[in-house]
């Protein structure tokens, strides 16, 4: 090729500025719709198989525990002592326990309390934690220092210990357990929310809102809490998993819900004896349900965390 290009540059001389160039500052170009950040997170979440399995499992357990008893009838009020420890067979797909209660029906009842206490205790802990964390982060100074020392104290006392002491002292009703577990689990969400609020406070969009004269109230409800919500939601799912585990552990140690309530941990409390006697149906079905339910919430929590993280990374 001998010339510089296919066309002589002198002939290609263009006007000093084309229309597009003159318009460049007037027209910032098109904007393509992607949807809200929540929707993006939901899309990522949906693509996470484990998270979807978690959701399906939770739905299954809700139906199993609350609708199941209407489809599968069993006597959970009086056990037939004569048939105690009867193996799986006709009429009793999972056999009977040491008090002669039908295992399958009992697992359904135990699922009810696990879900009720799990959700309620996690909700209680998250509400307290979010409020305390937001107040500490927003107020700063002495209030913050004081609240955070309380959180430190709460985190230092091993939760299971204090839950056990309270469970021994107070009656094992559902409300009592919701309160006992909830009141002892808000420390982690409080610390998380405070950290989130502290970092959000320095972000430019909050500064922008301040510089236009927004009140603390508006900052909190319009900017800080909506942006900290992701952290809270992720934490709620882990809180549910923890609450279910706490309940089962307390029950296993023999200090769980009082009759007529049933909890899975209590069903397992004679575990070693039952193992020695070979009554496997009194252990593995309940234990399996317990693990699957906790696993389901952990799957959901992990999926949510990734989904909400991706939104931040994608910017």
């Amino acid at each position: 090729m001998t010339s510089i290009g296919p066309v002589d540059p002198t002939q290609a001389a263009a006007p000093l500025a084309t229309e597009a160039e003159l318009l460049a500052e007037h027209d910032a170009g098109q904007v393509y719709e992607q949807g809200s950040s929540w929707r993006l997170a939901w899309q990522t979440f949906r693509e996470n198989y484990f998270a979807v399995i978690g959701v399906i499992l939770v739905i299954f357990f809700v139906l199993f525990s609350f609708v199941g008893p209407y489809l599968y009838h069993s006597n959970q009020l009086t056990g037939s002592i004569a048939d105690a420890n009867l193996g799986p067979g006709k009429g009793h797909p999972l056999g009977l326990d040491q008090n002669g209660f039908d295992e399958l029906g009992r697992i359904m009842k135990g699922g009810q309390t696990a879900l009720e206490i799990g959700f309620a205790a996690a909700a209680l802990a998250s509400v307290i934690g979010t409020l305390v964390g937001a107040i500490a982060g927003l107020a700063g100074g002495l209030v913050d220092a004081l609240l955070m020392r309380i959180v430190d104290v709460g985190l230092a006392i091993p939760t299971l210990f204090i839950i056990l002491v309270l469970a021994v002292r107070y009656n094992g009703t559902i409300t009592a357990f919701v309160l006992i577990i909830g009141i002892n689990s808000w420390f982690v969400p409080a610390r998380l929310v405070r950290g989130e609020v502290l970092s959000l406070r320095t972000r430019d969009f909050v500064q922008a809102s301040r510089s236009m004269g927004a009140t603390q109230w508006r900052l909190m409800w319009r900017h800080l809490i909506p942006n900290a919500l992701g952290t809270v939601i992720v934490n709620v799912t882990f809180q549910i998993a923890d609450a279910v585990l706490f309940l089962s552990t307390v029950g296993y140690l023999g200090f769980g819900l009082n009759p007529p309530y049933v909890d899975w941990g209590d069903q397992l409390s004679d575990g070693v004896t039952n193992l020695l006697n070979g009554y496997w149906w009194e252990i593995y079905p309940v234990g399996g349900c317990l693990i699957l339910l906790v696993l389901a919430f952990n799957f959901i929590g992990d999926g949510l965390r990734d989904a909400l993280d991706v939104r931040l990374r994608r910017r």
Binding site: S37, F205, V206, S209, G213, N227
Partner: peptide
């Protein structure tokens, strides 16, 4: 009075990613 005066004082920020609330339209 400060809120009222803020009308006259506005800021444009450096980081175009951090200065707009990601949750708001």
């Amino acid at each position: 009075r400060l809120r009222r005066t803020r009308r006259d004082l506005q800021m444009m920020f450096q980081d175009p990613y951090a200065s707009l609330d990601p949750r708001m339209r």
